[in-house]
Amino acid sequence: MLQDLDKLATRIRQVVALLQQARSESETRAARIAELEHRCRDMQEQAARDSKALALANKQLAEHEQGLQAARLESDRVRQDLESRLQDHQGRSQALQNQLDRTVTERDRLIDVATGAQQQIELILERLPGAEN
């Protein structure tokens, strides 16, 4: 019977050792689970912050794109206005150039007429009695 009690004591020690080992492993796993849950919460919080930051960046991008589109439209409007004004100025410039060309032609014709008239006057003056030769 002593022998049976020794076996039983040995078996109880083994069971106690297994229970202590199981408890230790359970505590280690519980600590690991708690650590993983903490990391998971941290990652969820970071994901939420990142999501908010992304939403803000998307909103800012949309605003910048709207501003850029508005600037493009304004730029196109100004360009069209300037092109229209340029065409007007070019038209006026061409009209003034044409008028200048006609004026120069008329001036040259008048110079020729005046030169011819002066020559005729000089000829007439030379033929008058008492003209100096």
Results as ranks from 00 to 15, higher is better:
Q69C: 05
H89M: 09
Q80P: 01
L110M: 13
E37Q: 12
N98R: 11
R49G: 08
T105N: 11
N58E: 15
Q46Y: 06
R72C: 04
E35K: 13
A55V: 03
D42L: 15
A95W: 03
L100C: 05
L86V: 08
Q46D: 09
R77W: 01
H64G: 13
L56D: 08
L18S: 14
H64T: 11
A71G: 08
L96S: 00
Q66C: 03
R77C: 02
A34G: 00
Q94Y: 09
D108W: 00
R102Q: 13
A47N: 15
L61V: 05
E83L: 11
Q20R: 07
Q69H: 09
I33T: 07
Q46M: 09
R102V: 08
Q46G: 05
A47V: 10
D50H: 07
H89R: 13
L36E: 00
N98G: 12
Q97P: 02
A53D: 14
L18F: 12
A71Y: 04
E65M: 10
S26C: 02
D42F: 10
A31I: 00
S93L: 05
Q60T: 00
Q21F: 02
R72L: 11
R41M: 08
R32H: 09
L100V: 03
H64P: 10
S51K: 14
T28F: 10
E83Q: 03
V78L: 11
N98P: 04
A30M: 02
E83K: 10
R41L: 14
G91D: 14
A53F: 06
R102A: 12
V104I: 06
A30W: 01
K59I: 11
N98Q: 15
S26I: 03
V78F: 05
Q69R: 15
Q60N: 05
L110A: 07
